[in-house]
Write a protein that binds this DNA or RNA. Structure first.
Lengths: 198, 198
DNA sequence: TGTATTTTATGACTGAAATCATAAAACAAT
DNA sequence: ATTGTTTTATGATTTCAGTCATAAAATACA
């Protein structure tokens, strides 16, 4: 997360996105550094027959879509506003200037990329070898401990919809619904009027 | 890839691993930066009933297992020698000193992490939404273009075994064997005495 | 406050990849 | 050459999540 003053200093601008608006498309060239100012952005893919996969959800303060700026690569997914949002946008050249002149921010960003790699390594192993219930628990625990920093003993109210959980784990809504039910029976999660607690 | 002279300057040491020897375990603390000197290392996971998932394969010049050094995280997978190997090992503190004093190397490393994130984003979308044949083609093409930098028009001889391809895509050997056969029928790959060409 | 939309829920059925069993081919080592 | 080991191959069968259809709850919103 780069402070607003710094972004301004390097000539970043704020752009607005309406819910469902697409910021950039898959397989296109990366030209900007983006950071969420308000709202929520998701990066996602669709396969031939429309099945979605959510690579990540980004809210206020989070940057996203940086990797293709570094490696000369195309975006592996599109970016889309989950709700009305505003986003800081910084030209690639200015972004690199910023990193050169602010090594502590560069290191900060490296940490963020490292964290994201950790998340992906965790989820891809889950998705390719584990059962629906196992995947969902891992996802929920990841959000609880790594994204919201909630201590183990405290309760976490899952903010994700069944559909979003499905799209984050490669499952289908119906499967998520059934797996969550089953996890409740096994006392692995609690349900309070359809809200999931863990 | 950090040059040998630089590694030596920051007091790195070379350690030897026999085939199948494990360098670090999943869920343990990261203390060193590692870079392959010779041989081949894989990072992998196993689920409860022994099914393997290969996170990455690293050969001469490649570093691996850096993310947990940056973010204060445990290793999401283990590291194991695929063949007899030697590996540069550099203490975490010295590694950060090296990065601070060599910003161009830091940037280089950021690029590598970015590339790895790109690979994971690509594969996790494949694994969660695509068919076996599609996944395998993506994997093969990724190795061809991004790892070996072979131009589209040139032929690439896949160096991976069916089992490795299975473990990289979350499939089973039998499924890989059948899918490759089917891809050959469709002229998407060639087979020359069991070797795969693309 | 009523209506539309989205999210959650459930049952019946299907299908694609996993599993299991077994063997042939390739390769490595002596 | 001989033997042992690993990799590739193939058929039969099973299973678990996906698919399809339909509805109830919850929520948004006019």
């Amino acid at each position: 997360m780069i402070p607003e003053e710094v972004l301004k200093k390097y000539d970043a601008s704020k752009i607005h996105l309406e819910k469902k608006e697409v910021l950039f498309n898959v397989d296109t060239q990366a030209r900007y550094y983006y950071q969420v100012n308000s709202g929520k952005i998701k990066m996602n893919n669709f396969n031939e027959d429309g099945k979605e996969f959510i690579q990540g959800l980004f809210s206020s303060g989070s940057s996203f879509g940086e990797p293709p700026l570094f490696a000369e690569l195309k975006y592996p997914a599109q970016a889309e506003a989950v709700e009305d949002s505003s986003v800081w946008r910084l030209e690639k050249e200015n972004f690199f200037k910023l990193l050169r002149e602010n090594p502590e921010i560069h290191l900060e960003l490296t940490k963020i990329l490292a964290g994201r790699l950790h998340y992906k390594a965790t989820m891809v192993a889950e998705i390719s070898t584990e059962s629906p219930e196992h995947r969902l628990l891992k996802l929920i625990d990841y959000f609880k401990t790594h994204i919201h920093n909630i201590p183990k003993e405290e309760q976490y109210l899952v903010e994700l919809s069944r559909q979003q959980m499905a799209d984050l784990t490669g499952l289908r809504v119906e499967t998520v619904i059934r797996a969550i039910k089953s996890l409740e029976k096994k006392k692995m999660v609690q349900l309070q009027s359809h809200k999931i607690l863990r």
